[in-house]
Measured scan of single mutants.
Amino acid sequence: MASQGTKRSYEQMETDGERQNATEIRASVGKMIDGIGRFYIQMCTELKLSDYEGRLIQNSLTIERMVLSAFDERRNKYLEEHPSAGKDPKKTGGPIYKRVDRKWMRELVLYDKEEIRRIWRQANNGDDATAGLTHMMIWHSNLNDTTYQRTRALVRTGMDPRMCSLMQGSTLPRRSGAAGAAVKGVGTMVMELIRMIKRGINDRNFWRGENGRKTRSAYERMCNILKGKFQTAAQRAMMDQVRESRNPGNAEIEDLIFLARSALILRGSVAHKSCLPACVYGPAVASGYDFEKEGYSLVGIDPFKLLQNSQVYSLIRPNENPAHKSQLVWMACNSAAFEDLRVLSFIRGTKVSPRGKLSTRGVQIASNENMDAMESSTLELRSRYWAIRTRSGGNTNQQRASAGQISVQPAFSVQRNLPFDKPTIMAAFTGNTEGRTSDMRAEIIRMMEGAKPEEMSFQGRGVFELSDERAANPIVPSFDMSNEGSYFFGDNAEEYDN
C-alpha cells in the first residue's frame, strides 16, 4: 500500500510504541512475548500442572481467558453494579484439565481477579502490559475465525453469508486497541457500523446529549479505520460520505453494504499476525530463551520457528480426527482463516481442507461434555516452508469459486491468482447506482469489472525454506488448481455463540 510509510507498523501498534527502528520493534515485541511466557509459567505453578498438562491447549485457553477477564475493567465495573446470582464479580476462573488415573478430569478453578492481575503485572515488570493482553485477544479471535462461520451475524446486519472472507476479527472485544483495529476485516468494521446506525434509528437519543457526542466521535473513528483499509480513492470518498452524514440511517447502511461487497474484489488491507497460545510461549521462556534479547516478529519467520520446536497437546472428542484438529489450530496460529487453501497447503506441506470436510468441533470443551471418553493427542503445528504475512489485500483475480465463501483475504505475501467468483459478486451490483453516491458507485463498479483474471497478485513473492531466515531465496510455489480455494466452501461450520 502506498501510504505504508505514514502508518505505524503493526509491531508498533502491538507494543504501543512511538516510531521505533526494526531492532527496537523486535525487542519490544519480544518483551511482550516474554511477559506472556513468564505469566503462563507462574500460572502453571499456581495450578500445580504437570509439564504435559501445561502444554494442553484447553488449559492455555482457560488461563488466557482468566487474565483477560481480570483486566476487563468495563465488564468488571458492570458486574459490580449489576450483581447477578451466583456470579462473584471479583473472581474469575474456568475449567482446568488434569490427568488422573490414566483419565482426563475437569476441575473448575476460581481465583481472585486481583490475584491474577498481581501475577500478570509481576510477570511483566510491574506494568499492565496491555500489548500482551491484546495479543491474547487476537489469538482467540484468530481461533474463532478458523472455527466458526459468522453466517447468522452477517444475515442479521443485512449482509450476504458468502462475504465471510471479510469477517476477520469479528469476535475481537471493543477494547483491543490499535492492534485489534489493524486485524479487523472490512466486513467486521461494516458490521460494527451498521449495528451502531441501527441503534440510532431505533433509539432517538442515541446521537443526542453528552453521551451522543461520545457516540458520534466513536462512529467517526470507526469510519476512519474502515476508510484506511480501502485502497481505492472511490471507496475512500464513499467512506467520507458515510462519516460526514448528519443523521446516519438506511442510506448509510446501503452504502456500507455496497462497500463491503466491493471489497470482495477491490480488497481492503487487513493486517495478519501470528499470535500463538500462551502454552507455546511459556515452555520456550522456561527453556531459557530470551525473546527480548533475541527479538521477535509476528509477521516473519519467528512464529514458524517457534511452532517448529513446540509440543502442544489437545483434548480430542471420541469421533474427532486429531489431524483435522491440528489443521484448525495451525490455521489459527498463522492467522489464515480466509487465505486461499492452495497457498496454505503449499506452505504447510500437507493438504489443507475446507472447514466442512474437517471432523472436528471447536477447541474448547463445553462444561456439560462427558470427560470419560476424552483422549488427548499432539497437535501437528509444523510447516514445510515459511512466508511473510501481508497486510495488503493483493490485486484481484477471477477463479472458480464456491457456493460458500466467494473470495479470499490473503494472509501471506505469496504470488498467486486470487480466487473470487466474479459473476456471483457482480450480480449483486445491478441497477442500484442512484442517489448521492452514484458517481462513486459507478466508478467502483467500473474498477471491479476491469479486474483481470490473468493478473498475478504479489508478483514474484515466494515462500522460503525454514533454514532461509533472511528470506534470501524465494520459492514461487505451484498450486494444484483442481483443489478448492475457499475454506468455508459450501460450508456447515458451527455458528459462533458468545
Results as ranks from 00 to 15, higher is better:
178 A>M: 15
264 L>D: 09
133 L>N: 13
120 W>P: 02
452 K>E: 13
377 S>F: 12
118 R>M: 10
172 L>C: 06
207 W>T: 07
42 Q>F: 12
266 L>H: 06
128 D>M: 00
90 K>T: 15
140 H>A: 09
83 P>I: 12
402 S>F: 14
478 S>P: 14
427 A>Q: 04
65 R>E: 10
30 G>L: 13
107 E>K: 08
107 E>D: 01
452 K>R: 02
163 M>E: 07
87 K>V: 03
36 I>W: 10
341 L>G: 12
285 V>H: 15
296 Y>D: 06
468 D>R: 10
491 D>I: 01
491 D>V: 03
47 L>M: 12
139 W>G: 09
95 P>R: 01
188 T>D: 10
257 I>E: 08
218 A>Y: 09
249 G>Q: 10
30 G>R: 04
300 G>V: 06
150 R>L: 06
365 I>M: 06
416 R>E: 12
215 T>V: 14
385 Y>P: 10
449 E>F: 08
293 K>F: 10
7 K>M: 11
441 R>T: 07
22 A>V: 12
341 L>V: 13
377 S>Y: 05
145 D>M: 10
416 R>D: 08
355 R>M: 04
134 T>Y: 04
421 D>A: 02
448 M>A: 14
357 K>F: 08
359 S>Q: 15
312 V>C: 00
363 V>N: 07
8 R>H: 08
227 K>G: 11
278 A>C: 06
73 E>I: 15
496 Y>W: 15
84 S>A: 15
224 N>E: 05
303 P>H: 02
464 F>G: 01
425 I>D: 03
18 E>D: 00
324 H>Y: 14
486 S>N: 10
443 E>V: 06
385 Y>W: 10
286 A>W: 09
400 R>H: 03
353 S>V: 00
256 L>C: 13
385 Y>C: 03
93 G>N: 06
182 A>C: 08
202 N>M: 00
441 R>K: 09
416 R>T: 15
405 Q>H: 04
53 E>S: 08
184 K>Y: 08
406 I>P: 05
327 Q>F: 12
134 T>A: 14
191 M>Y: 02
15 T>K: 07
350 T>E: 09
460 G>V: 12
173 P>N: 00
262 S>N: 10
165 S>F: 14
348 R>D: 12
23 T>G: 01
168 Q>T: 14
353 S>Y: 05
211 N>Y: 06
208 R>I: 02
418 L>F: 12
130 T>S: 14
461 R>S: 13
109 V>I: 08
147 T>W: 07
239 M>P: 06
207 W>S: 05
427 A>E: 07
86 G>T: 02
320 E>D: 05
411 A>F: 09
378 T>P: 02
114 E>R: 05
80 E>G: 02
110 L>Q: 05
400 R>E: 05
309 N>F: 06
3 S>E: 08
120 W>A: 02
269 S>R: 10
12 Q>H: 00
185 G>V: 09
191 M>I: 03
333 C>D: 08
382 R>H: 05
310 S>P: 05
1 M>R: 00
74 R>K: 15
153 A>R: 15
250 N>Q: 08
413 S>Y: 05
332 A>R: 02
228 G>S: 14
404 G>K: 04
426 M>L: 06
146 T>S: 14
171 T>F: 07
273 K>F: 09
460 G>H: 02
30 G>I: 07
157 T>A: 03
273 K>I: 14
280 V>W: 12
458 F>N: 01
466 L>W: 04
199 R>G: 07
194 I>Y: 14
56 L>Q: 04
257 I>Y: 15
12 Q>P: 01
154 L>E: 06
243 R>M: 01
176 S>Y: 05
36 I>P: 02
255 D>K: 11
244 E>A: 01
408 V>H: 06
205 N>D: 13
87 K>E: 15
182 A>Y: 05
21 N>L: 02
492 N>F: 01
44 C>V: 00
302 D>Q: 01
19 R>P: 12
208 R>D: 10
313 Y>T: 14
344 L>G: 07
412 F>P: 09
245 S>A: 01
489 F>M: 10
372 D>M: 03
475 I>V: 01
441 R>I: 11
252 E>Y: 08
115 E>R: 03
39 F>Q: 03
228 G>A: 05
40 Y>L: 00
422 K>Y: 13
442 A>K: 03
25 I>Q: 03
3 S>C: 04
293 K>M: 10
19 R>S: 01
211 N>I: 15
42 Q>V: 08
280 V>T: 12
438 S>E: 09
44 C>E: 09
109 V>H: 05
422 K>V: 00
464 F>Q: 09
152 R>T: 01
312 V>E: 08
192 E>A: 02
435 G>P: 05
194 I>K: 13
154 L>Q: 03
112 D>P: 05
277 P>C: 13
344 L>E: 10
257 I>L: 07
209 G>E: 07
102 R>Y: 14
170 S>L: 14
58 Q>M: 06
350 T>M: 01
157 T>P: 01
436 R>M: 04
317 R>I: 03
180 G>A: 13
56 L>M: 02
190 V>D: 06
469 E>W: 02
58 Q>E: 05
53 E>L: 00
73 E>V: 13
177 G>K: 13
218 A>R: 07
178 A>L: 00
426 M>Q: 01
65 R>Y: 10
104 W>F: 02
488 F>V: 04
64 E>A: 01
174 R>K: 13
409 Q>S: 01
222 M>Y: 15
78 Y>A: 03
281 Y>L: 09
288 G>K: 10
485 G>R: 13
146 T>N: 03
17 G>K: 00
171 T>L: 06
290 D>I: 10
100 V>L: 04
325 K>I: 06
306 L>G: 02
206 F>D: 14
476 V>I: 12
147 T>E: 10
38 R>M: 10
89 P>A: 01
317 R>S: 08
154 L>D: 06
221 R>D: 12
3 S>I: 00
200 G>K: 13
485 G>P: 07
480 D>E: 02
462 G>Q: 10
493 A>L: 00
80 E>D: 04
135 H>Q: 02
256 L>I: 03
108 L>E: 10
378 T>S: 00
339 E>C: 13
413 S>M: 10
480 D>F: 03
242 V>A: 04
357 K>G: 08
44 C>Q: 09
378 T>Y: 07
192 E>T: 08
33 I>H: 10
35 G>V: 06
78 Y>I: 09
357 K>L: 13
115 E>C: 11
180 G>M: 10
468 D>K: 08
314 S>H: 12
427 A>M: 14
244 E>N: 15
409 Q>N: 01
360 T>E: 10
321 N>E: 03
275 C>V: 07
479 F>C: 04
251 A>I: 10
164 C>Y: 12
133 L>K: 15
53 E>W: 12
342 R>Q: 03
497 D>F: 03
349 G>L: 01
45 T>H: 00
27 A>S: 03
168 Q>A: 15
49 L>W: 06
204 R>A: 02
212 G>N: 04
473 N>I: 03
256 L>F: 15
112 D>T: 15
118 R>D: 10
68 L>V: 15
160 D>F: 14
170 S>N: 01
484 E>F: 03
216 R>Y: 10
487 Y>M: 11
455 E>C: 15
300 G>R: 13
85 A>V: 02
336 A>M: 12
4 Q>G: 05
466 L>D: 02
139 W>T: 10
24 E>H: 03
394 G>W: 13
51 D>W: 13
265 I>F: 12
341 L>H: 08
286 A>V: 14
393 G>F: 10
19 R>D: 10
320 E>S: 08
423 P>W: 05
103 K>Y: 12
252 E>G: 15
339 E>F: 06
148 Y>D: 06
28 S>H: 00
30 G>A: 04
391 R>A: 15
498 N>Y: 06
120 W>G: 05
270 V>A: 03
113 K>Q: 15
398 Q>W: 01
163 M>K: 05
422 K>H: 02
115 E>Q: 02
109 V>P: 03
343 V>G: 13
453 P>I: 04
135 H>G: 06
54 G>T: 04
377 S>A: 15
385 Y>M: 02
479 F>Q: 01
344 L>W: 10
146 T>F: 12
390 T>R: 07
315 L>G: 03
26 R>I: 05
61 L>A: 15
57 I>C: 12
494 E>M: 03
36 I>Q: 07
42 Q>G: 00
213 R>T: 09
453 P>D: 01
